[in-house]
Design a protein around this nucleic acid. Structure first.
Lengths: 186, 186
DNA sequence: TCATTATTGAAACAGTCGTACCATATACTC
DNA sequence: GAGTATATGGTACGACTGTTTCAATAATGA
């Protein structure tokens, strides 16, 4: 008996909080402005999530979940030449719509370097890509257990993303990816 | 007349503050703990630097200056095969002694994505590498105006650095660099 | 000694932070 | 209606932030 719980409220708050963090970043996140933007109160954020730390953890999990869903649903099919597949991945990840995710991705990585204890699964998030990319680039891999090719492909993508986000020079980064695709074909 | 100024004090403070930031990161930097570690006071930090923002700017400039000096003095000579040169760069930048610089590098980049207005020269810091690397890899470039090869080389290095700092898997990242060197040779 | 300039300490200010406490309102069963 | 559990609002606490204010000290040249 008593008033029934409303778990949907927490879900709604989590979704909007994730939007907010994707838009404003993690670094300066503060409960009061967040609550104001979500039309709720710090009181309720703590009521639903327990503490700011747990709220952030939930937001990061939600952001990762969203990224995984979009990756699975929107990543171009693993067909065509190596260049076409590589360009597809690059076009997808470097698109403007992905910018908030990319930003958060870099932000979490940087914070993880200073506070590794807060991110026990940091390495996991990196190596998770291997399953996807290993399948995509099987024909240029040296074998099914080849982790080197996915590592290199992801390094190029992340490194060029780093460059693109810092300099905004899309032409140069696009051409660098094409150069890599050319090297990989051989 | 009057008591003579002591500009050396500011220099000493800046040097030690840079050590501190390299050790502790930028994110949670706060004047009182910093002053305590430097055996001075917040009062003196503001007296010497004007504001926290200016102090941070001075520290970042000093850190970049140090990095440039070490790069110029310690980077292996541009001789030998492509693999040897690439391995030299990778060994240098990924060495444990460089870890604080790398950490700060990623931290500044991430913060710059959220607050671009604070880092007007972010793009410059990225493209600065081109002069050095363009010279180092001239024989695999398509010409003296080739910016694509340095872009790709730096993307691989930064991307693998990202991976290495996140996962700590040196064996895998080292092998990925070798794979890239092999591709580049052709 | 004295004026002058640089340096430094101590304390306070106005603000923000995450969080805890206390009351109240709401929605349900009986 | 009473009883009960959930949901909220309001407020205040203690700790922290960058910065300012006021006063004192130190080192020089005259």
């Amino acid at each position: 008996m008593g008033r029934p719980a409303d778990p949907a409220r927490r879900d709604r708050t989590l979704a909007r909080a994730t939007d907010y963090v994707l838009a404003h970043g993690l670094a300066g996140l503060s409960l009061r402005p967040l609550a104001a933007a979500l039309e709720t109160s710090p009181r309720m954020l703590l009521y639903d999530f327990g503490s700011k730390q747990e709220l952030v953890a939930a937001v990061l999990a939600e952001a990762r979940r969203r990224g995984a869903v979009r990756l699975a649903g929107q990543l171009p099919a693993a067909t065509g030449s190596v260049q076409e597949r590589l360009r597809g991945i690059w076009a997808w990840i470097s698109a403007d719509e992905r910018a908030p995710f990319v930003r958060l991705f870099f932000e979490v990585h940087a914070d993880g370097l200073v506070h590794p204890e807060n991110y026990p699964d940091q390495g996991q998030a990196i190596t998770d890509w291997f399953d996807t990319l290993g399948a995509t680039f099987r024909d240029v891999s040296t074998g099914p257990e080849d982790t080197v090719t996915p590592t290199l492909v992801m390094a190029v993508v992340r490194g060029l993303l780093f460059d693109l986000t810092a300099t905004g020079d899309r032409h140069r980064t696009d051409r660098a990816l094409d150069r890599f695709a050319g090297l990989l074909r051989q």
